[in-house]
Design a protein around this nucleic acid. Sequence first.
DNA 1: CTTCACACTTACATTTATGTACGTACTTAC
DNA 2: GTAAGTACGTACATAAATGTAAGTGTGAAG
Lengths: 137, 137
Amino acid sequence: MPEPNEDYTPPPLSERMQRGDLMAAACPSRKVLKHVTSRWGVLVLIALEGGTLRFSELRRTIGGVSERMLAQTLQWLEADGMVNRTAHDVVPPHVDYSLTPLGQEAAEKVRLLADWIEFNLPRIAESWADRQSAAVD
Amino acid sequence: MPEPNEDYTPPPLSERMQRGDLMAAACPSRKVLKHVTSRWGVLVLIALEGGTLRFSELRRTIGGVSERMLAQTLQWLEADGMVNRTAHDVVPPHVDYSLTPLGQEAAEKVRLLADWIEFNLPRIAESWADRQSAAVD
DNA sequence: CTTCACACTTACATTTATGTACGTACTTAC
DNA sequence: GTAAGTACGTACATAAATGTAAGTGTGAAG
């Protein structure tokens, strides 16, 4: 375990902004991070890693997502260049969603985190059990 | 690019719940994911990867965080067993925060994602530039 | 004597996220 | 003829996240 840092001062803002720095409040990275780590963004990326899915297939795959939020999330990810949207002009509508190369890289990182959490849930749950009152949230 | 999956059906819920499955709406993993990927949770984990920091040091490190949200986030992560809180009983107060082994593993995954985003911001920004109207969010 | 830092907590206001319900235009299945 | 499925958009309502401002008790610095 590292020693406490007695006299800590953050690096100057100018330096921290040169290459996107999340610690800087105004960094555009935070927007992307928001989309990718959003409640449904994570699950969409992971779901699409398994291959192309239609809107309704995504909706059935991801438990609890509403149509509205799924559409919203897909639009975020499409705008960020993570997701391809392919609409076939037929009726009833048929729209396919898939990951772009960018999206596949992002999905991989996100899935590593998700897998880690699922796998280590027991260890985490110990902490919940240990603390008595515990109702933090 | 994978082929469209014409007749997709998700696996049964019972099977998906046996080991924590994020796709299941009620899975406790989602709570952990929420804390870890929350706006400030990500940044706290990354900040603490560099070593122990005091409350006020964290506040100065993480641009834009309010005292209230920092305290809140630290409590979430502490309850999830990711963060150690060490209060020295002196006045004025002195409290150190550091990562637990669990927290270090989580922080690593989170940082990989954050680093990827920062590094690939230019590629992502292209998508923003490409689409004309673009004001998705 | 006044001000400030510390590490929070609480109350309150506001912004953001998310949900619900409905509409659409047409087709296939019953 | 009636119901259901498709991929959304939109209006409205609610829940959740986040911000703001103030207060706490004490000691050191000015």
